Amino acid sequence: MDLRLHKAAAAGDAAAIHQLLDNGAAVEARDASGATPLLIATHGNKVEAARVLIEAGADVNAKDDIQDSPYLYAGARGHLDILKLTLAHGADLKSTNRYGGTALIPASERGHVETVAILIKAGVAVDHVNRLGWTALIEAVILSDGGPRHVQIVKQLVDAGADVNLADNDGVTPLQHARSRGFTAILKLLEEAGAT
């Protein structure tokens, strides 16, 4: 297993990546975890390394053994520059992670305001339900601290047409979750959007 390209990607060494590719290194080579060099560059948010690999034809949707792809990982972690590159090079907006969620769901949960805006604009489905029975809106409520970033994300999701009454698998709505957590700003947004 030739991991020189993976090592150069991890180090963010764009010049070494160019040289290895020129010498015939496989852009889609996999390491023991199934990760491509592009996914390794994405893990470290090595933007220039990612750019070189993407321009050389690296697949932005290639998943590793735990169902992470460069596109999904960049979205979940808020790696904006790499996310934008993946979106410009064929990111599959319908692809899902190991929880059955789109990139928008973990981005919402983790409070990545700008990432959420980019993914909504790109056309990721706002009401996608993951295997846990949660939408981006539900995760922005139940897995957050209810602070300013999550308030902004809830507003973005509501403005994008998210179904404010779409309940989780237990029949609990975003409004009920927000109320039980005492998230008054989120509660107000949901009520104004017609949540019941």
Rank of each mutant, 00 (worst) to 15 (best):
L3H: 12
R4W: 05
L5Y: 02
D13H: 09
A15D: 14
H18M: 00
Q19H: 13
D22C: 01
N23I: 05
A25N: 10
V27E: 12
E28N: 10
A32V: 13
G34H: 00
P37D: 04
L38C: 04
L38K: 02
L39D: 05
I40W: 04
A41G: 04
A41W: 03
H43P: 04
K46C: 00
V47A: 02
V47N: 05
E48H: 08
A56H: 03
D59T: 12
N61T: 13
A62V: 05
D65L: 13
S69P: 05
S69W: 00
Y71E: 02
A74D: 05
A74F: 03
A74P: 00
G75K: 04
A76P: 04
R77Y: 12
R77M: 15
H79V: 02
L80P: 02
L80K: 11
L83M: 14
K84W: 00
L85Y: 09
L85D: 06
H89F: 11
G90F: 01
D92T: 03
S95Y: 03
S95E: 15
N97A: 10
Y99D: 15
G101P: 01
T102N: 08
A103C: 11
L104A: 06
P106T: 10
A107S: 09
S108H: 00
E109H: 09
E114L: 12
T115F: 07
V116Q: 03
A117M: 04
V124S: 02
V129I: 15
I138H: 00
E139Y: 10
S144C: 11
I153W: 02
L157I: 11
L157C: 08
V158P: 07
A160S: 11
A162R: 04
D163A: 08
N169W: 10
T173K: 05
T173N: 09
A178M: 05
R179K: 15
R179T: 15
R181F: 15
I186D: 05
L187A: 10
E191G: 13
E191W: 03
E191I: 14
G194D: 09
G194I: 13
T196I: 12
